[in-house]
Computed example of a mutant assay.
Amino acid sequence: MRSIAVRTEYRVAEALDAVSFENFYRAQADRVYRSLAVALADPQLAREAADEGMTRAYARWRKVGALDNPGGWVFRVGLNWATSRWRKLRRERFIPAEAVADAGPSAAGVIAAQVALARLSLAYRTVIVCRVLLDLSTAETAAVLGLPEGTVKSRLARGLAALRAELTEEVHP
């Protein structure tokens, strides 16, 4: 009789975990994808990375769901997966400068910002994405990326300075 009660309790816990993960997925999937798309400068790779991160979160949901920031965990897992894939394929992606010239005036500023962000190193882009798009604190960004807080502050300052310089150069050649 005890084994039936244990199995029933386990099934109830699994059902609650599934509902909890489903709520998390609905709330965070698009945000994680958009953040990865900006960080990676490749929407297709970002979609795959976000899906991979979510799949791994689901497989470990009891542990991941208990974290302070499960969305940050999924972002980091997706970022690690994409970085590994890049290393395996040994390729780099750039947004061509012609894309800015071909866009209309209202879209040109957005595309210029995307181009400037894509030209930053992945280290700077990921910190900027975590702080600006994911709205994580310095401590949360450090935890998600596995970096000291000082490194996060330094990369943020340098990355934003490079971004400003690039965008100023685009406006005033």
Rank of each mutant, 00 (worst) to 15 (best):
Q114D: 00
G71D: 05
S20P: 02
Q114K: 11
V19M: 12
R90N: 13
K63D: 13
G53D: 02
A103E: 13
V6Q: 12
D68E: 14
D68G: 15
K88V: 06
A39Y: 00
A107C: 06
V100P: 01
T8H: 09
V127H: 08
F21G: 04
V32N: 04
L163S: 02
D17S: 12
R164T: 05
A5W: 13
A143D: 14
L134R: 05
L156H: 07
H172Y: 10
E14G: 02
D42Y: 06
D42A: 13
I95E: 03
L122V: 05
A118I: 04
V74I: 08
R85I: 06
S20W: 07
A108Q: 14
A15L: 12
R125M: 08
L40V: 05
K88S: 10
A97I: 14
T138Y: 12
A162R: 14
T138V: 15
A112M: 04
G159F: 00
R131I: 10
R47Q: 14
V144L: 07
A13H: 11
F75T: 03
A13S: 11
R26P: 04
L133T: 04
R11G: 01
M54N: 03
G104H: 10
A46E: 01
C130P: 06
C130E: 03
V19P: 02
A97V: 15
E52R: 12
D68T: 11
W86M: 13
A112H: 02
I4Y: 12
A107Q: 15
L160T: 04
E14T: 10
K88Y: 14
L16F: 13
W73K: 02
D42I: 06
A101W: 11
V12G: 01
G146D: 09
P173Q: 08
G109F: 09
G71M: 07
R2S: 14
I4V: 12
L117S: 05
V115A: 03
W86A: 08
E52L: 06
A37T: 05
T141D: 09
A103W: 03
R93W: 14
R93F: 15
L36S: 06
T55H: 08
Q28K: 08
P43Q: 04
